[in-house]
Simulated assay, not measured.
Amino acid sequence: MTPRQSAAVARLARADTRFFKTHPDRRHRIRLAHPAELALIGREIVPPGLTLLTAIRQLLPGVYAHAHTVGQPGRDEASEAEASALFERASLQASALH
C-alpha cells in the first residue's frame, strides 16, 4: 500500500468514527468504497452500472469490521436494517470465496 493509500484509509476510518459518534443508535453503515480500499481487496474492476460498496459493522467503539460488495449506485445511504443485511450478505459472499 502506498503512503497516499494509507492516508486515504486513515481518513476513511476517521469518517467511520464520526458517523458512529453522531449516530449512537447505529451498529452498521454503508458507504461507497474508496479507490484505496479497492486496491486493498484486489477488486479494481467493477461491472458496468454497479459500484463497490463498503459495509461496516461497529464491533466496539472505534473497532470495525468491513465487508465489500457490488451494488447499485446511490446505495450509500441506508437504514440500520438495510446496512445490517448488506453487511451479512457481503460477509457471506466473502466467506464463500475463501
Rank of each mutant, 00 (worst) to 15 (best):
R26L: 03
P3K: 13
R89Y: 00
S91C: 04
R18G: 13
G74T: 09
R29L: 15
G62P: 01
T54V: 14
G62H: 06
T2W: 04
A13Y: 10
A65V: 11
P73T: 10
L50Y: 02
R26S: 07
D16H: 09
V70A: 10
S6T: 08
A36I: 04
H34K: 12
T54H: 13
F87D: 00
A90H: 03
R14Y: 10
E80I: 03
Y64I: 06
E82W: 00
A81K: 05
A15T: 11
H34Y: 10
L59A: 14
I41T: 07
L60H: 12
G49T: 05
L52Y: 04
E88L: 03
L50F: 06
A55G: 02
R75Q: 12
I56C: 10
A15I: 09
Q5K: 13
P48W: 06
L86P: 00
P24T: 05
T51Y: 02
A33H: 05
I41P: 08
M1A: 13
E88T: 01
T51S: 07
R26V: 01
S91N: 07
A33S: 12
E82G: 00
E82F: 00
L40D: 09
R4N: 10
G49D: 06
A39I: 04
S91I: 01
R31N: 14
D76R: 15
P3R: 14
I41R: 11
H23P: 09
T69S: 06
P61Q: 07
A83S: 03
V46W: 01
R27M: 03
L50E: 07
D16T: 12
L38K: 15
S91K: 08
L32Y: 10
Q5I: 10
R11N: 11
L92T: 02
E77A: 15
Q93M: 06
A33Q: 03
A94W: 04
A36L: 07
L32F: 08
A33C: 07
T54G: 12
L60E: 15
R31K: 14
A15C: 13
R75F: 08
R14H: 13
F19I: 09
L12N: 14
E88C: 01
R57E: 11
L97N: 09
R26N: 06
P48V: 09
P24L: 05
R57Y: 07
Q72V: 14
D16G: 05
V46R: 04
Q5F: 12
S84Y: 01
S91G: 11
G71M: 12
R57Q: 05
L12G: 14
R18A: 15
L50C: 06
E80G: 13
R75A: 15
S95W: 03
M1S: 15
A67P: 02
Y64D: 04
V9E: 14
G74V: 14
I30P: 01
R4L: 12
T69I: 08
T2E: 09
A85C: 00
A94M: 07
S6V: 07
G49K: 04
